[in-house]
């Protein structure tokens, strides 16, 4: 399911250097080992630095991963420890 060839836009909201935030960043990067830059756009937002951006997307807890596109958008709460589930959710082979 899903099409890895299509462009994907992800936004990860973190808070500074909290442990869960660091783990989430590592887990997300591990999902794209080949640096799948052409197809995946990952933006990391620190809500402590940019509270307005967190507010705009209704971010309550951190880390929160927001799949902006392709539709439908979805959000994942947590440090993304379960990479298998995440891969499944995002439709990545």
């Amino acid at each position: 399911m899903g099409n890895p060839g299509r462009a994907m836009s992800l936004r990860l909201f973190v808070t500074g250097d909290s442990p869960d935030s660091a783990i989430a960043i590592a887990n997300l990067r591990a999902l794209f080992p080949n640096g799948d830059g052409a197809h995946v756009e990952i933006e990391i937002v620190d809500v402590q630095q940019q509270p307005a951006r967190g507010a705009r997307d209704g971010i309550i807890v951190t880390p929160t991963l927001l799949k902006v596109s392709p539709a439908p958008p979805c959000r994942v709460l947590g440090n993304l420890t379960n990479r298998e589930a995440l891969r499944h959710l995002l439709g990545i082979q």
């Binding site: 808070t15 809500v47 807890v61 880390p63 959000r75 420890t81 379960n82 589930a85």
Partner: peptide
């Protein structure tokens, strides 16, 4: 502030309320 997103969000690992607090603080 709308916190309802947490109800429909998927959970994957642990998280904390630091983000919440910084948003509220703002």
């Amino acid at each position: 502030m709308d916190g309802r997103e947490v109800r429909t969000a998927f959970r994957n690992g642990s998280f904390d309320l630091v983000g919440l607090l910084s948003a509220v603080e703002h």
